[in-house]
Design a protein around this nucleic acid. Structure first.
Lengths: 206, 206
DNA sequence: CAAATATAATAAACACTGTTTAGCGAAAAT
DNA sequence: ATTTTCGCTAAACAGTGTTTATTATATTTG
């Protein structure tokens, strides 16, 4: 009898319905300002129903977290075609910038927010998608080393963390409005200029 | 008549009493997990009383924000005595790292949290303390240039933002638990190593 | 097919949150 | 001594995440 299969399918559809509504609301108005009741209202179900499909609000967040990394990895595919290793690294940086600026709420969720990490730290597979994107950075750097770059560096993981830190720092200061005291509207240019400077720093130092 | 003076003094004492209780609770258990009722309970007053001295929870947070920058600037004084400009820059970086790691909740509040920026963006003097510490970084870099460093860079503000971004990114990834997937307990070493690498990058590139 | 069982959905409640309002008691001014 | 002012608070308001007891429906069993 296909009843259990149908039920399973219906359950998955319901999970998707909830997640889709949650995504829309989260990305539109932010995580904190989106309540379970808002999501319930959007899908025309009672708030309690959501708890039959997701353990709590954090698990809902965690699902979007995973989807975010998938989306980012997908966009990184555009970069993989670049032949020259150093150019590829620069392209990766540009793609990372682009992703964060085009999906600010998603980036926040993936790399800044506190909440999902509580749910995340328990799970083992939780880091898989995140680790994969860090691996992509590492292999790109390894390729750079093979063609003669990064002469002063042997520790690939350290170089990766350093580059990631800069990118993330620049974006964090932007997304969390810590560059506001510059008091002009050149914030986007500043980000571009800083990225260019960092690229030049890497080019002639490592 | 000294009554108005006494009242003013009492009012300031009360503000300080509330702020001190708020600081203890915020820094101990985090901002989100500290409620107005918690603070009220700690000082043995009704929750409503707090609203007679502070507009809302964000203003309370904003006061701690200011105090945080004052504390950081105080610690930067230790750095000001270093003669050699580049050594001074490195010492400043180390002091910044130290401050963030010794005061994680305070650093979070000052540079990562979303909440205080809403209150902050209205005020003009709000940025004063923050801008002053950025100014300190800028002048240190200017001194470095005067003795021959940073040959490839003319834009001091861009160099400052780039350095700050790296430092902040490294600390953000740490404080918001984004380095957890390394799955070893070498996180502190990784931070130190990355800082050292970045210093070397600056030394021989700019 | 009818009765028993399993299940999906919910209304209502619980324990919180930040914030506002109305009112009381004491201090200050008249 | 009376009026006014002012510090303080109990209670309420509107919201939050989450749990529980109950109902209505779908499925299985006799």
């Amino acid at each position: 009898m296909g009843i259990v299969e149908r039920k399973e399918r219906e359950r998955e559809e319901m999970r998707e319905l909830i997640l889709e509504a949650a995504r829309k609301l989260f990305l539109a108005q932010g995580f904190d300002k989106t309540s379970i009741r808002n999501i319930a209202e959007a899908i025309e179900y009672s708030p309690a129903t959501i708890y039959l499909y997701y353990k709590d609000k954090n698990e809902l967040l965690f699902s979007l977290h995973e989807a975010g990394f998938q989306k980012m990895m997908q966009e990184f595919a555009n970069v993989a075609v670049v032949k020259d290793p150093f150019e590829k690294l620069v392209a990766l940086g540009n793609q990372y910038l682009k992703f964060a600026i085009e999906n600010p709420e998603l980036y926040d969720l993936m790399f800044i927010m506190d909440a999902p990490m509580e749910t995340l730290s328990c799970r083992e597979e939780a880091w898989d998608e995140g680790a994969r994107s860090f691996e992509f950075l590492k292999t790109t750097i390894a390729e750079c080393i093979q063609v003669g770059h990064f002469k002063n560096t042997v520790d690939i993981e350290n170089a990766s963390l350093t580059i990631w830190s800069f990118m993330h720092g620049l974006l964090s200061l932007h997304l969390r409005k810590r560059m506001a005291f510059f008091e002009d509207d050149r914030e986007m240019e500043r980000i571009q200029d800083s990225f260019k400077l960092f690229v030049e720093m890497i080019r002639c130092s490592m």
